[in-house]
């Protein structure tokens, strides 16, 4: 089971969370102007990266809020957690901090 650090509540077991899939997918501002392929890309196409993946989680059985995380899909180790709306952290920097044992991750939120 994953240990997930909610940016609002701190470190909690995976059971408290639901998964939200790939992060940073903005709904098109003018959907009517999209052609079928662009709409398909938005609805169905995901990067499915083998490596560092930016993904959404929701603290469904806690504060209820969505947030984002960087996770290595080849190890399931988290590199970073950040709030919705914040830019995706620099992957190289997140990797470097994860190499230090994830000490940069907050234990109990803010």
């Amino acid at each position: 089971m994953l240990l997930i650090v909610c940016p609002y509540c701190g470190k909690r077991p995976e059971l408290e969370f639901t998964y939200g899939g790939q992060a940073h997918l903005a709904r098109p501002v003018e959907p009517a102007e999209l052609d079928d392929q662009a709409w398909t890309d938005f609805l169905y196409m995901r990067t499915n990266i083998k490596g560092i993946y930016a993904e959404r989680w929701r603290h469904a059985r806690g504060c209820g809020r969505f947030f984002n995380a960087l996770r290595d899909t080849t190890t399931d180790h988290f590199l970073s957690f950040y709030k919705t709306g914040e830019p995706m952290p620099d992957i190289a920097a997140a990797k470097a901090s994860a190499a230090l044992g994830n000490r940069a991750l907050p234990e109990n939120g803010k």
Binding site: E14, T18, G21, E55, T73, T74, D76
Partner: peptide, 13 residues
């Protein structure tokens, strides 16, 4: 499991 992964392992729960 709930999340995408390539690890060939999952959670005990």
């Amino acid at each position: 499991d709930a999340y995408t992964s390539y690890t060939q392992r999952g959670a005990l729960h």
